[in-house]
């Protein structure tokens, strides 16, 4: 969480301004322009939900959690299962109204994500804190195992969301285009979450401890603070937020064992691009990458360059690192 300086602000303004300008030039109407922006923000917010945990956990614990995408996947499956009839957790009898069932399904997904987070941190990761390479291999292995367990429980067939419920199906009109209220809801939720986490980090004692721990973990311990407990809390929170991402993405993207992979790759780009361990960098980087992917998706329509959206985060990462080698808000540690 290094203090930003003029060059990073200029880089942010130039890149976001450039993306908005390209989106505007590419779209033939204000309506299309609005749709691209909303799509970019929607993707950016989902990305933030994976990247924020990745970034804070890395900053505090020096652990790059490759299982973060798997938690996103678990969130999507649990929410899907709880919302639809005939699944493992069938809530259709208990809560017949799908509009009421959805928030419960999301909360359930977050709880499952948090519980799995505690198990991973306490049970597997803790003995390996002194061995960074082992941690990396472990979290990667856990992601693979989680995907296999999901296949065992829910089979290998991807699920498309079929349950109809209010917010998902509602649209509003602007500049002659239909906009999805659900996407707007996810964007709003993402913004609220960005602010809440920022307040947690800035105002609360635990936030001060996390920020201090990112700088100097040893000194935090020397002040009488049990860093292990803080690790568990932060790791669990990161996994729970990733599961929340999967749960709110499921109505649009469904549930599949590969759903988390794309977000994990993009989130790693966001964390590096924003500056390793910087919360502000992660929030801004998520929006940036989300917008860039949406612009690339628009640009790729009707061309033979269908891979453009998937390589865009890495192109953006290269661009930012050329401008600022330590990332937007990174310090040169």
């Amino acid at each position: 969480m290094a203090r930003t300086n003029r060059s990073s602000l200029i880089a942010i303004l130039v890149i976001i301004g450039g993306l908005i300008a390209v989106a505007f030039v590419n779209s033939n109407s204000l309506g299309n322009f609005g749709i691209t922006l909303l799509s970019g923000l929607f993707q950016g917010m989902l990305l933030f939900l994976v990247a924020s945990g990745l970034s804070i956990v890395f900053g505090l614990m020096d652990v790059l959690n490759f299982a973060q995408g798997a938690y996103f996947m678990v969130g999507a499956y649990v929410a899907y299962d709880a919302q639809h009839a005939g699944g493992l957790i069938d809530l259709t009898q208990a809560i017949p109204d799908p509009n009421l069932r959805f928030p419960v399904a999301v909360i359930l997904a977050v709880i499952v994500g948090a519980l799995l987070g505690v198990i991973l941190e306490r049970g597997l990761l803790r003995p390996l804190y002194a061995r960074p390479v082992f941690q990396l291999v472990l979290t990667f292995g856990v992601a693979l195992v989680m995907a296999e367990i999901i296949k065992f429980i829910w089979t290998t067939t991807p699920y498309s969301w079929t349950e109809v419920f209010g917010v998902r199906e509602s649209f509003f009109e602007l500049f002659g285009q239909r906009f999805s209220t659900y996407r707007l809801f996810v964007v709003g939720m993402g913004i609220v979450l960005i602010i809440l986490i920022a307040l947690l980090l800035r105002r609360s004692r635990i936030g001060i401890i996390i920020r201090a721990g990112v700088e100097d973990r040893e000194m935090v311990q020397s002040l009488g603070i049990n860093v292990q407990t803080v690790f568990t809390l932060v790791f669990t929170l990161g996994c729970a937020i990733a599961a929340l991402g999967g749960a709110v993405a499921a109505p649009f993207l469904g549930a599949s064992t590969t759903i988390g992979d794309i977000f994990l790759l993009q989130a790693i780009a966001v964390v590096v691009l924003g500056g390793m361990g910087s919360y502000e960098g992660t929030a801004i980087g998520s929006v940036m990458v989300g917008l860039a992917v949406a612009v690339a998706q628009d640009a790729a329509i009707g061309t033979s360059f269908a891979a453009l959206p998937s390589i865009t985060p890495m192109l953006l990462l290269i661009l930012v690192l050329l401008l600022r080698p330590s990332g937007l808000f990174g310090n040169a540690r």
Binding site: M1, R3, A212, E215, D216, Q221, S222, L223, I225
Partner: peptide
Amino acid sequence: PHAIAQLGIGYVPEHRAIFRELTVHE
């Protein structure tokens, strides 16, 4: 270390080790 500190031992390390990103109050 945290349990030792909690017994009532304060530590001022070499090179200060203050938290640079935190305010004086924090």
